[in-house]
Design a binder for these strands. Structure first.
Length: 262
DNA sequence: AAGAATGTTATGTA
DNA sequence: CTACATAACATTCT
């Protein structure tokens, strides 16, 4: 569930649903408070996504911070919402809909200082207009590190996870183990542009799609999940059946087409 | 029922 | 200082 594009969707949704309203949420321990306007209620100014992190900015300068991690999930229900399931962490009650959060990796209230520290250590987010492309590119392009490692490092590029790492390196025919510094300068497009494109498609279609521009619309509505990706979690390419290698890189399973990714 | 999974951080090691 | 490994934490699905 949580790659960067998902988080941006949530930010957008929550922003339009709750900005300007008192919202009961996010007590310091991450337990939920379910009364909008109750003792925990503060007015929400805006919701922002930075990489895979969500920032809820409140009028009293505090920031609610949510990171979904592997399992975190917002469930949406039409009001009146059913009783909370499991260990609820946050409950956002809107006019028509209620969002309930379970299983986040992080869920806490930060002061200015803390939230600044957090956002400061996040890298460039391909989905943000204020991203410093040059910084991200240099960080990877000058590094002796494997590209596949840099792409998972949130302090370099924030928002790409294991799926996007696999898919965008495949699309460029770059082997994940290749050192950033060794990539040819004249490669058709550096990973950044592909990241922008793929994450953007993710937001647009509410799912991860890694096919070419013309095909996007068609494929997104028709294809089953297993066919929206080229090599992620596959032993053979979906297009030509060529064998796909699997190994561990930066503590996650990496994938590469044996024949064409070098 | 064990194990894997779209993630991050802190800590230890070389 | 960098890179890599490991553990910890959250939960659901096969």
């Amino acid at each position: 569930m949580p790659e960067g594009h998902t988080i941006h969707q949530l930010a957008r949704d929550h922003q339009s649903c709750f900005a300007g309203r008192p919202v009961g949420m996010l007590s310091p321990q991450g337990r939920f408070a379910d009364q909008a306007g109750g003792s925990e209620g503060r007015v929400l100014i805006s919701v922002e996504a930075l990489g895979k992190h969500l920032f809820y900015r409140f009028d009293d300068k505090l920031t609610g911070h949510v990171h979904l991690g592997l399992f975190g999930k917002f469930r949406v229900q039409k009001n009146p919402a059913a009783n909370p399931r499991g260990a609820g962490r946050v409950r956002l009650i809107g006019n028509e809909r209620t969002f309930a959060l379970n299983g986040p990796n992080q869920c806490e209230l930060l002061d200015c200082q803390q939230s600044h520290v957090l956002s400061g250590r996040l890298g460039q987010d391909p989905l943000r207009r204020d991203a410093d492309v040059k910084a991200a590119r240099e960080r990877i392009g000058r590094s002796k590190r494997a590209v596949g490692s840099g792409l998972l490092d949130q302090s370099v590029i924030a928002g790409t996870g294991n799926i996007y790492r696999s898919e965008l390196l495949f699309l460029q025919r770059i082997h994940p183990e290749r050192r950033g510094a060794d990539m040819s300068r004249d490669a058709s497009l550096p990973p950044w542009e592909w990241a922008v494109r793929l994450l953007g498609a993710g937001v647009r279609y509410h799912r991860i799609i890694t096919v070419t521009r013309e095909e996007e619309g068609r494929l997104s509505s028709r294809l089953p999940t297993s066919e929206r990706l080229h090599i992620y979690k596959k032993s053979h390419r979906s297009c030509c059946g060529g064998p796909v290698d699997q190994w561990s890189l930066a503590a996650r399973t990496a994938y590469a087409c044996q024949a064409c990714q070098q």
